[in-house]
Amino acid sequence: MNWQADGWLQGVTWLASPNFGERPAGAVSLVVIHNISLPPDEFGGDWVEKFFLNQLDPAAHPYFATIADLQVSAHFYVRRDGRVIQFVGCDQRAWHAGNSCWGERDNCNDYSVGIELEGSDTQPFSGAQYAALWPLLDAVQARYPIAAVAGHCHVAPGRKSDPGPCFDWAAVAARYPALALPAEVAA
């Protein structure tokens, strides 16, 4: 996979979100894994895309009225079928982690790439998603000095639970033994 200007990855679908900002000085060194489904625990449709593009119709589902005014984005979104969509160039700061901390560093959005997997805390992710995630992580590592991979639950403990207990951290550890992982999943 090759990169374009501003950290846009070739070979994936691009949908430019307005929800991003400039990164402060410093290297991108962390990948944060998330899960998302809209409505919650339902897959398919284009609701997540609309959410990241600020086009979510609050009247389309009762849950949407509670989130439609949020301005959220991730760098990448991996659908259940393995299709990868990029919303923010990785040289920019996506708004995916919120109030967060990894190690001694706050504001994970400043130095991380956010990858959302279409899913929930209660259902396993698909084989197609992992088959798409590995080359995506490889590409991100090839462009940036990634030192660690963590879940949203690890950078925002008590506030977030994703990617959830169904995410295969053992596979991440096996494929990327040089990367730091959260203590509870690295063992």
Rank of each mutant, 00 (worst) to 15 (best):
E49W: 00
A128W: 05
L38H: 06
A171D: 05
D110T: 11
C90I: 13
G26M: 03
G21W: 02
Y144Q: 11
T13K: 02
G164D: 10
D138G: 09
N19I: 08
V31R: 14
G127E: 02
D41T: 04
G26F: 05
K50Y: 06
L117G: 10
L70V: 07
E104P: 01
T13G: 05
V185G: 06
Q4I: 15
G45Q: 05
V84A: 11
F43P: 12
G26P: 04
A59E: 14
V172K: 14
G158K: 04
G21M: 00
V155Q: 09
F20N: 05
D91F: 13
I85G: 02
G127Y: 00
W134P: 11
V72N: 02
A183G: 09
A187D: 15
A183F: 09
I115C: 00
N109I: 09
A68I: 05
F87E: 12
G44C: 05
M1A: 03
T66P: 03
R83L: 09
T13Y: 11
W8T: 14
Q55M: 04
Q141H: 12
V149N: 12
I115V: 10
P163K: 09
V88Y: 10
E184K: 11
P157H: 05
P182M: 02
W8R: 15
S112C: 15
A173P: 10
